[in-house]
Design a protein around this nucleic acid. Structure first.
Length: 482
RNA sequence: CGCGGGGUGGAGCAGCGGCAGCUCGCGUGGCUCAUAACCACGAGGUCACAGGUUCGAGUCCUGUCCCCGCAACCA
């Protein structure tokens, strides 16, 4: 039994969970469920990233302590995972004592590559934030939000010698020992690496940002959130001493959004190399979700809550839409309209109805007795290939080819005609073939639509049809608001 | 010349050198097992533009015009 470790990135608890977070959960869940289906021993981890100035500020605005805010928001994310049927084995929070302690161990282990230096940057006291040279130049030296000039400020920070790791990280990505999918993302990071990496600041003065993990041996500094958050992928396994870490690292897949590619394809691998650890085997980078072709944003008021969609349609339809209709290798769009179309046409009419008509015929013509169900013999190669490279959309396309094929087969064979002519053997054969196909489809669907797969199994698995209560995907008639 | 992605029937996409394809939507017909579902057929494209390579180009090369993302701590 081989070990399989898959992790999502851990969302920052700065805002409410949105469709993009939900999609990432779902994608990673497909990988985890597929691995379990293949008999692997799986750890699937997700969680929340909770430190940093932004959280502290936001908490202050709301009259909460940072920890109270983090608790509240973290719970929202774990609730989302639950309502989407995400099968994560772990849910790590960067405020967990275990993470904080292990992060400090990691820091110490990295000390040969850490040095103290002055950070010089452009600072806006309005934002209380540093800005890059390019950013400042683009705004002609004046902060547009506060209409005051950026100040040049120096502060003491610890730095990580990222520059020393440019070459080995580059090599790992070039020879695909750290595979990055899709390829354009790999190219993007290669070109970044080819231009060389600079050392990065990895701490903040405690008097500026206190909400963070203390730097070991320096009471005046806390770790920079990102630096410490990346460590979750190994602290969750119990680095350095726990057996899970020995057994499950390196990760088989890390699932991330395109916005955090640099952190995961440059900084994180460098940290791992500095720790003398192996790199993840695959970094799968998904795109962003727009709503009605616009970037989700509070000011536009077009944010759609994953909860609303799940409440109305359920977890499986949600999973289905985001896995098949948001391109696995690119950005995609959600709208209620396209969601409903997918639900009605594909789930209800094609799949749901295929199950329904099969059930009805077996019940009507054979009193619900299926008899021997032959093994299905479709060529799964294309499906498997798609799964291997995280092309969930393509994999589902192939499943739906089978669903359509099934409906075509029914129309060609016309079981109702066979029933009239009284050729019982032939009829039994045809209907058993249908059941067999639906069982096969259920198996292919299992990682994607776990509830649906189970319901289909339950109907046909015993050689006798056990009618479903209601229908698989009840048609939704009432128009959705908005 | 910062980097990257893209412009293909009404919409969304595939095709990456050999007669332009898929899904939705639309039209017509068929069927009656079924969730007014299912099946078949059809209409609809000078593949952003201009050059070039080739026996042959959405497909390769060059140039132009648009769109989008990253760069600037959003998944």
């Amino acid at each position: 039994m081989s070990k399989y470790y898959v992790a999502t990135s851990i969302p920052y608890v700065n805002g409410e969970p949105h469709l993009g977070h939900a999609m990432e959960f779902v994608m990673a869940d497909v990988l985890a469920r597929q691995a379990r289906q293949n008999g692997d021993d799986v750890i699937f981890s997700t969680g929340t990233d909770e430190h940093g100035g932004k959280i502290a500020e936001k908490a202050a605005e709301l009259g909460l302590t940072p920890k109270e805010l983090a608790d509240k928001m973290s719970a929202r994310f774990s609730a989302l995972a639950k309502s989407l049927n995400i099968s994560n084995d772990r849910f790590i929070r960067t405020t967990d004592a275990g993470h904080e302690q292990r992060a400090q161990l990691i820091w110490k282990a990295l000390e040969k590559d850490i040095y103290k230096s002055k950070y010089v940057g452009w600072y806006c006291t309005g934002d209380e934030e540093f800005f890059s040279e390019a950013h400042v130049k683009a705004n002609n030296g004046v902060c547009p939000d506060h209409n005051r000039p950026y100040e040049k400020i120096e502060e003491e920070n610890y730095f990580f010698r990222l520059s020393s790791y440019t070459a080995p990280v580059l090599k790992a990505i070039e020879d695909n020992s750290l595979l990055i999918l899709p390829a354009p993302k790999r190219n993007e990071i290669l070109s970044l690496l080819n231009s060389g990496l600079e050392d990065i600041s990895i701490s903040r003065p405690k008097d500026k940002i206190s909400w963070g993990i203390p730097v070991p041996g320096d009471v005046h500094q806390v770790m920079y959130v990102w630096f410490e958050a990346l460590m979750n992928y190994i602290t969750v396994l119990g680095y350095p001493e726990h057996q899970d870490f020995t057994d499950f690292w390196p990760a088989d897949v890390q699932v991330i959004g395109k916005g955090i590619l640099r952190f995961h394809a440059a900084i994180w691998p460098a940290m791992l190399l500095a720790l003398d650890l192996e790199l993840p085997k695959l970094l799968y980078v998904h795109g962003y979700v727009t709503v009605d072709n616009k970037k989700m944003s509070k000011s536009l008021g077009n944010a759609v809550s994953p909860d609303d969609v799940i409440k109305k349609y359920g977890a499986d339809p949600f999973r289905y839409f985001f896995l098949r209709h948001i391109p696995s290798y690119g950005d995609g769009d959600f709208s209620w309209q396209t969601f409903e179309a997918a639900y009605n046409n594909e789930l209800a009419n094609e799949l749901g109805n295929a199950v329904q008509r099969t059930v009805a015929m077996i019940t009507k013509y054979q009193n619900g007795i299926i008899g021997d169900i032959p093994d299905a013999e479709h060529d799964m190669a294309q499906y498997q290939e798609a799964m291997a490279i995280c092309r969930f959309d393509r994999a589902l396309d192939h499943v739906w080819e089978q669903v359509r094929g099934l409906n075509q087969y029914i129309d060609e064979e016309k079981p109702w005609t066979i029933a009239k002519t009284g050729d019982e053997d032939h009829l039994r054969e045809v209907l058993a073939y249908l059941a067999s196909n639906l069982l096969e489809i259920a198996s292919l669907l299992e990682p994607f639509l776990p509830e649906t797969a189970l319901r289909i199994y339950n109907v046909f698995a015993e050689g006798i049809v056990r009618p479903i209560e209601g229908t698989l995907f009840p048609k939704q008639d009432e128009p959705v608001e908005e």
